[in-house]
Simulated assay, not measured.
Amino acid sequence: MTPTRPRFGARLAAAMSAHGPLCVGIDPHPALLAAWGLPDDADGLRRFALTTLEAVAGRVAAVKPQSALFERHGSRGVAVLEEVVAAGRGTGTLVVVDAKRGDIGSTMAAYADAYLRDGSPLAGDALTVSPFLGVGSLAPAVEAAAATGRGLFVLALTSNPEGASVQHAVAPDGRSVAAGVAAYAATRNAAELAAATADDGRAGAPRVDGRDGVVALGSVGLVVGATVGDAAARTGVDLAAVRGPLLAPGVGAQGAGPAELAAVFAGARGAVLASSSRGVLAAGPAVPALREAAARAAGEAAAALA
């Protein structure tokens, strides 16, 4: 099936090459709204989110609105999220909707329809998903993303202490749960990149990324916390073999600096999309200050991952 737009992995690789490996989270926490002098309601939410987008759109590889912080304001908050997704698309900046959806059967298909279908007001360029009902449960989302040229970021190694009890556990096949998730992503990406390379040979076909210094990325990425230390090595996760983007929350205010990024992602640094939320957002509400903070975070991430 031919996607309705260029595949997400290629678009993200180009955006990271152009703007650096930074994704700015749009996380309207109540404390940040207060710090910006905004009310904790849908109007404050809208001003916060659109100001952040104004500051960083076209200057960073991606933005990542956190769905829960919009949903807490009810239908008006969800309407603001829809507006932010549309505005992000309008600027040409990639939008990762951070909703961490995961379910089975028709329910997962409904989530895929909501967040990955062309024409849906909640459909950005990629969606975060949870595989912990079994990676096979993600099939509706994987298929919908592939059909529309969108991407997925699958939770794999998260930095919350509770995550290890599930992610580090050993499955019946002898692999850790995280390693099984990574292997699933690697298989999907290998097939995608092989097909893209084959298409490259057709007259008039766009070239597959991975040339001229741009890392070739598939469209099924992983979420790997920037503060997980040696968890990948301890759980047998080969991040380089995934050949997809590695979304790394925890950069900046949450504790991960250049040393942590370099240590966690050794061997796969070219695939890392470092995510910073409060580390950038705390500089607001002035647009120039937000831009300066984002540029500084992007430069630090690029230096750590070089």
Rank of each mutant, 00 (worst) to 15 (best):
S130G: 02
A126V: 13
D118I: 11
E82A: 14
A112P: 09
F48S: 03
V80L: 14
L38M: 12
A86C: 07
A68Y: 00
V56S: 13
L53D: 14
S106P: 05
P39K: 11
D98V: 06
E54F: 08
A99W: 00
P65M: 12
A112Q: 11
A57M: 08
G20H: 08
V85M: 08
A99Y: 01
T52K: 01
D40C: 05
A31L: 12
G77H: 11
P30W: 04
A49D: 05
V24H: 12
G58N: 11
R76A: 15
Q66C: 01
E83G: 01
D27C: 01
D41N: 15
P28I: 07
S17P: 05
A14T: 02
P21E: 08
E71P: 01
I26C: 04
V85W: 00
L45P: 12
L122T: 00
A55R: 15
V96C: 11
I26D: 04
A34R: 15
H19D: 07
L53Y: 11
A55D: 15
D98T: 04
S75G: 02
P21T: 14
T128P: 01
H73S: 08
G134C: 10
A35R: 12
P39N: 05
V129E: 09
L32A: 12
L38P: 07
W36A: 13
S120E: 06
V96N: 11
F48W: 09
G20M: 12
A57P: 02
A49F: 05
A61S: 06
A86S: 13
A35F: 02
R89T: 03
V95W: 07
D27F: 10
R72A: 04
R46F: 08
E54G: 15
G105E: 13
G88Q: 06
P39S: 09
R72K: 10
V63A: 04
V24P: 11
V56F: 05
P39F: 07
A14N: 03
S75Y: 01
L127N: 05
G134E: 12
S106A: 14
G74K: 11
G74Q: 09
G37C: 14
D98H: 04
R101H: 06
S67G: 04
V95A: 08
G58E: 09
A13Q: 04
R76V: 07
L50R: 14
S17A: 15
L69F: 15
A123W: 05
A126N: 10
G88I: 02
L127E: 00
S17T: 14
A49P: 06
D118R: 15
S75A: 13
R46W: 03
D113F: 15
